[in-house]
Amino acid sequence: MNQDSLVRLRKLNFDELIHIDTDDVANYTYETYASNQEHKIKADGIGGCNKCETSNCVTSQSHSLRFMSHGAHTIDYFSGSQTDFTGWSDAPILFILESPGSDGKIYADANKFSKMPTKQWYWVHDNKRFIDVSLEMNTKRKKYGEFFVSIMNHFKLSNVYVTNLVKCGLAVGKKNEYNIYKYDESVVANCFKEYLDKELEIIKPQAVFAFGGRVYNAFRNKYGKDYPADEKLFCMPHPSPRFMSQVGYRKQALTHLLIGLSKSEIITDVEKENHFRLLNLQ
Rank of each mutant, 00 (worst) to 15 (best):
R220I: 14
T255H: 10
E136W: 09
F67E: 14
H275P: 08
F234Y: 04
N56D: 14
T255S: 08
V166L: 02
T29N: 05
L6M: 12
D4N: 14
A207M: 02
Y249E: 10
K263W: 05
G47T: 03
T163I: 13
W123F: 12
K198G: 02
R10W: 01
V166H: 05
T255P: 07
N280E: 14
S158V: 09
I75C: 06
Y30V: 08
Y77Q: 00
F113M: 05
D269T: 14
D132Y: 10
I151F: 07
D126I: 01
D84T: 04
L157A: 08
P92A: 06
K156Q: 08
M116L: 10
C49K: 00
H73R: 15
R8A: 05
F95W: 01
Q82V: 13
I267M: 03
N2T: 01
Q282I: 12
D44K: 04
V160K: 05
F85G: 00
G212D: 03
L200A: 14
G212W: 02
G71H: 05
R250V: 07
L6R: 05
N190Q: 10
Y28E: 01
E199S: 01
K174E: 12
W121G: 06
N2A: 04
N164M: 09
K115M: 03
S99G: 03
D15A: 10
V188Q: 03
F85R: 03
Q82M: 15
M244L: 09
Y77H: 03
E194I: 13
V166I: 08
Y33L: 00
V149D: 15
T118L: 06
F276K: 10
I203Q: 01
L170R: 12
R220P: 14
H154G: 04
I202T: 03
S69F: 07
E194F: 03
I18Q: 03
V270M: 14
F147N: 06
H275V: 08
L97Q: 13
N127A: 10
D269A: 07
L9W: 03
F192W: 11
V58Y: 00
F130E: 09
Y216D: 07
V166P: 01
P239T: 02
N164S: 10
Y161C: 05
N274A: 11
L200P: 14
L17P: 00
N190V: 06
R8K: 12
L17T: 00
A253W: 11
G45Q: 05
V270F: 13
